Computed example of a mutant assay.
Amino acid sequence: MLKDFLKDKEIILASGSPRRQQFFRELNIPFTTDVRPVKEVYPPSLENEEITDFLAELKAEAFQKEIKLNQILITSDTIVCHKGKALGKPETPEEAKAMLSSLSGHSHEVITSVCFTTSKIKRTLNAKTRVSFKELTRDEIDYYVDNFKPFDKAGGYAIQEWIGLIGITNIEGSYFNVVGLPTHLVYDALLDMGRL
């Protein structure tokens, strides 16, 4: 259905995430990928969705003067917010284990922003999902990080992996947002843009 609305549009997904790319395939959205290096630094005054909105829009700036009339560029960013702190991607096993230890036995928010950019407009949407973990043991945390190496994942974990299967007790909001993309928002936004 969406494919018909977008038949005159070229979708560029600026993400190397295999999870996001899989979502686009499952939504039956034809797309090409174009990933450009961006230094993901944001002003320290920003909080929560302000951070992900800023970073999603920052990633779009790398393409700004190249977007053609029929193209829609999609950029996104995900963070985990816990106790007033934004958790990005851990760089070391120790950092991943520290993140999971802090999330253990608590609830946190996963926030994803998606920026849609054309030659004429820029539109940024975001979604929040509340996720709760049981008390994780040190052995469980060590096993997960050592075997799954979640260094490309905000907060140091992927909900669809082993740690999610054994550790997550409750979710409020979109599951797919936690995996990395609020697919319902992407679908609705592209439907609107296909009508333009």
Rank of each mutant, 00 (worst) to 15 (best):
K65D: 14
L46W: 01
L103T: 03
D139N: 14
E26A: 14
K9Y: 15
G173D: 03
A60N: 05
Y143E: 04
S102T: 10
L190T: 09
E91Y: 13
E66Q: 13
I111K: 00
Q64R: 14
A158S: 11
C115T: 02
N170R: 12
E172M: 04
T92N: 07
I171V: 08
Q22K: 15
D142A: 12
K39F: 06
D77F: 05
N147R: 15
N28R: 15
S104W: 05
D146K: 14
F31C: 05
C81E: 11
G164I: 05
G167C: 10
L190P: 04
Y42T: 08
L196H: 10
D34I: 07
A98Y: 04
H108C: 08
I141P: 01
Y157M: 01
L27A: 10
A127R: 00
E57V: 09
F133S: 04
S15A: 09
T92E: 05
A154G: 09
N170P: 11
S102M: 12
Y143N: 03
I111D: 00
A86P: 15
L103S: 05
I111P: 00
A96R: 02
V80G: 04
D77P: 07
I11G: 09
K85P: 01
S119H: 07
I166Q: 09
A154E: 05
I74W: 02
R19Q: 14
Y144N: 06
S119A: 14
W162K: 09
D34W: 06
M1A: 15
E26I: 13
E161Y: 09
R138A: 15
L55D: 03
E91R: 15
T52K: 00
K97Q: 11
P44G: 11
F24D: 13
F24C: 15
N48P: 01
R36K: 07
S107V: 06
G105L: 06
Y143C: 03
D34S: 13
P44K: 13
G194M: 11
D142E: 15
K65P: 01
L58D: 07
T183W: 08
H108T: 03
K149E: 12
T78N: 03
A158I: 06
E47F: 01
E135R: 12
I159K: 03
I163T: 02
G156Y: 05
P44A: 14
I159W: 04
V178S: 03
N147C: 11
D53S: 07
R130H: 09
E135I: 14
T92H: 10
